[in-house]
Amino acid sequence: MNQAGRIQQWSQRFNLRLLILVLAIGLGVNVLGVGHLLVAFRWMLSPADLQLLVQLGGLFLLVLIPAAGIYSLVSEFAFWEGWLQGLPTPASLFEPAVARATTHDCFLVYLDGIHQLERDHPPRVSDFLALLEQRLPADTLLVRGLETYTVMPVALAEDAGSAWFWRRLFALQEHYPNSLVQLIAAVLVQANNVIKVGISSDRRYGPILNYELALKISLRLAEAGFRPDRGCRIALMGYSGGAEMAMGVADYLRRITRAPVSIISFCGVFSGNQVLHQLAGITMIVGSKDPVAAFGRFAYPGRSPLLPLSNWNQSLSAGRIERCEIAGMNHNGIHGPFSDAFRLRVIKAILAALQR
C-alpha cells in the first residue's frame, strides 16, 4: 500500500474511533443507569441471566448499532438521489399556497437532544417549553415538535424502511415487563440519534443530512407562516446533541429562507466544523457542572485552541460567539436545564440571547 493509501486508511480508522467515542459519551448517563440497575438487582441475576445480558450487549454493540448507522447513510443517499418523496424543493416552499403570512418577526425553532423518541417531547421538556413560550415576546413564535433525528417529515415509527423495527422497539420500551429490556430498548433509540449527531459533524456525509434537515425545518416554518419577504429572523435553539444539528443546518437554512439565522445552544455537544461565519450570532448556555457538554470541546479537534484557523475558532476570534455559564447546572436530571432548580435561569438566558 502506498503512502496516500495508508494515510486514508488511518483517517478512516480515526473517524470511526471518534464516532464510537462520541457515542459512548453521549450514552454515558444511560450506561450509569444500567450500572445502578445491576447493583440494585444483583441478587436476582443468575448465571444464565448474566450470560443472556452479555449476549444482548454483544448483539447491541456489534450488530444493531452498526446496522442503524448504515441504514442512516443509505436512507440519506436514497433521498438525495430522488428515490424517496416527502420534502419539497426550496423554490416551492414559500409560495402563497404553502405559506400563510404571519405577524411574527422571529421564529424560535427548538431542536431536542438525543432522548427524543417521537414528535411529542418528554414531559419535563414540554413543561420547559410551555414556560418559555409564556415568556417570549409577542413577536416571537416558538416552533416545537420537530423530530430532529429524522430527515423525513414523519416519525421513526412511520419511516417506510424501518417502521417495523422501531414500532417493535417502542413496544418493548413501553410494555415489556422487564425493566432492563425497557432500558436497552431506550438506549438503542438514543444510539440511533447519536449516530445522526456523528454524521452531521462529518465533512463527507454531514452536508447531505444537514441540507435535508434544513429542508424539513423550512417546511415547518412555511406552515407556521414564515415568509422570506417579511424580513423575519430565525433562531435555532438546540439542547445537547440538538446543538450539533443546529450548527449543521444553520447555513443551509439561511440560504433557503434568505433570512438571518442565529443559534442558541444549552448544554450543547457540538463540533463547530460547519460554516458559521455568516450566522447572525451564536450563544452558548453551559452548566459549570456539565461533563457531557464539556467533553465536546475535547472530542472535536476543531474547537481546540491549538487550531486557530478552524471554523469555530475563527468565529470565536471575530466575536460572533457568546458564552453564558450557569453555576451548578449539570447536563440533565435534578440539576439539569429542565429541572425546577435551573429552568427559569436557562429561560432567562435564552430570552437575553434573543434580545441580542
Score class of each variant (00 low, 15 high):
K348S: 15
A293Y: 02
N193F: 03
K196E: 12
I321G: 04
R254Q: 13
L64F: 12
R124T: 08
Y205Q: 06
L129P: 03
I20R: 14
I263W: 02
L309N: 11
A185Y: 12
G241H: 02
Q85A: 10
I70Y: 02
T148I: 09
D290T: 07
W166N: 08
E174M: 09
I282P: 03
I282A: 10
M247W: 13
C232I: 06
D202G: 09
F94N: 06
Q182G: 08
G268P: 11
A327P: 00
P337A: 00
M284E: 15
G272A: 05
Y252A: 11
R343T: 04
M1S: 03
C106G: 02
R203A: 10
I334G: 00
N15R: 15
A97K: 15
T257K: 09
Q278L: 10
F77N: 02
P96S: 10
F270N: 10
E212Y: 01
A222R: 00
L61Y: 04
S201T: 13
T150V: 09
E223P: 07
F77R: 15
R230T: 09
M237D: 01
W166Y: 15
A349V: 00
A250V: 15
R255W: 05
L37W: 12
L221P: 03
V31S: 07
G113N: 09
E223F: 03
